[in-house]
């Protein structure tokens, strides 16, 4: 049986590195994924994920209980947004990067029909649409829609009220819908149908 989280945290605080690495193993995928979705860049996400755990180890004493996952994701999303900002300060580079961003590495698992449809360009497009959101909305979309966090936990991550999560998510989704509509030729049938219904109504 796996030791529970508070125990791991306590042992980590006492200097047990293997206990801390157990925490790392448990959450590194989520930390990496949230960072990657906010940053839209896997190399940066890798750096941010590593930095997240280094920072977490340093500030373990600052963890006051609650959800360890939320705490780690909070560090990760803060670092990701920092990285986004510092990249924005060099606009020439960021433009080039946006044009030539390498696609995400997808583990080759048995592709279902939907996943098949989502390959390549569409995946890129969705990520680009997420990237077009303002940072605060992007973080909430990454947490709730991509990572599947509850509103409560997402609120803990961003350090705001649940109401803030709700409104950022609602705005972010509407915006996302609008930018996805601009690439309707890539969208699966389900989405195009809605689009058609809308066009005939309007």
């Amino acid at each position: 049986m796996q030791p529970d989280e508070p125990q791991l945290v306590d042992r980590s605080r006492d200097g047990d590195l293997s206990a801390f690495n157990a925490i790392v193993e448990r959450y590194q995928s989520q930390v990496y994924n949230v960072s990657a979705r906010i940053l839209g860049d896997r190399h940066l996400a890798e750096d941010v994920a590593q930095e997240t755990f280094i920072k977490a180890h340093r500030s373990l004493n600052g963890f006051r209980g609650g959800s360890l996952r939320a705490w780690l994701l909070r560090i990760a999303s803060n670092l990701s947004l920092d990285a986004t900002r510092s990249r924005k300060r060099r606009p020439a580079e960021s433009l080039e990067e946006a044009g030539e961003r390498p696609g995400f590495f997808v583990p080759s698992e048995g592709p279902g029909p939907e996943q098949e449809a989502l390959r390549g360009e569409l995946r890129e497009t969705i990520q680009e649409c997420i990237m077009s959101l303002p940072a605060d909305q992007r973080a909430v979309v990454a947490l709730v829609d991509v990572q599947g966090l509850s509103y409560d936990e997402a609120a803990e991550v961003i350090g705001s009220a649940v109401g803030t999560v709700k409104s950022r998510l609602a705005r972010g989704r509407r915006r996302l819908r609008d930018s996805l509509m601009e690439h309707r030729e890539l969208l699966p049938a389900q989405f195009r149908q809605i689009d058609r219904g809308r066009a005939s109504d309007g």
Partner: peptide
């Protein structure tokens, strides 16, 4: 649509 984005495999252990 967003939820269908694949979960990314971390390139290495952190």
């Amino acid at each position: 649509l967003v939820q269908l984005l694949p979960e990314l495999e971390p390139p290495r252990s952190f």
